[in-house]
Write a protein that binds this DNA or RNA. Structure first.
Lengths: 145, 145
DNA sequence: CTTGACCTTAGAGTGCACTCCAAGGCCTAC
DNA sequence: GTAGGCCTTGGAGTGCACTCTAAGGTCAAG
């Protein structure tokens, strides 16, 4: 078995573009996150190019998950501070975590409800069931493309 | 029992601000949604004020749920077109719905994973368990406020 | 050692979803 | 009938999260 020493990945093999490709982000976005304090300044090569290890992938995935919760980057930064240091610059860490967990539960409920709506809509589609829509209802304007 | 006649709510009791208060949106936002084709043009009083019934609350809640999924307003409009008319101006309705349901499932998985992360972080907090963070790690800059 | 793809920076630009503004009109409680 | 709060419109402004640009430097395959 490999000895993955400590918490920081010392195998710095990825460029900023390669890291981005791993998680579906552009290099610019990753540099923007660094500027914004979401990720630590990356170690550099002698020629000043950023190098990343696997741990950066985890961090970006965490950020993406938090973003899907609807958090702003500054709020995600607070969450990452808890992850990194065990406390938060603005409020008790445990309180913050509890708060966010409750939000996730609410969000899970909302999404589950939306899912049920969509399933119901799919079932009601012509070919799948009775309730054809009545004609003459308002239709959204077709200003597409 | 009350006869709630047909699909369209004929009890138009709410002003745009009252409707907004019901779902946590500002009047401007609701008018913006109307302009964007997400909600049908509201019936007006003789003095040209919008009036809404309960069905508008449902529609806005649906929009809010879809937004939490990360959909753009134009994509939500397509979903609403399916809801209203049974088909979509741009792609087969059933395909669209299946696609969105799969997205929701992926999102539920992501949020569940994030929730587990946060619970783990809460458990690791000083007072709750062993793994105190080592000092000397990078801390995000405190450029708050 | 060259070549071409990728990297660096600061700063400007984009797209989305609001959010506000000004000038004027409506509605309802008194 | 009138006062004050809410309504109307078109258009401008805001905040966020990117996303792009220009001018130049680095990296690694051949």
């Amino acid at each position: 078995m490999l000895d993955v020493s400590a918490m920081t990945d010392t195998n710095l093999t990825m460029s900023v573009a390669q890291l981005g490709a791993r998680v579906g982000l552009r290099p610019d976005t990753i540099r923007y996150y660094e500027r914004s304090g979401l990720i630590p300044p990356a170690p550099r090569t002698t020629g000043d190019h950023r190098r990343y290890g696997e741990d950066a992938v985890d961090r970006l995935r965490f950020i993406q998950g938090a973003q899907r919760l609807g958090l702003r980057l500054r709020e995600i930064a607070d969450l990452l501070a808890v992850r990194d240091t065990g406390n938060c610059p603005c409020e008790p860490a445990e309180q913050l975590l509890r708060h966010r967990i409750i939000e996730i539960d609410a969000e899970l409920a909302r999404l589950t409800a939306l899912r049920a709506d969509l399933v119901r809509m799919a079932d009601a589609l012509p070919g799948n069931g009775p309730p054809d829509p009545e004609p003459g209802k308002w239709c959204p304007p077709e200003m597409r493309r």
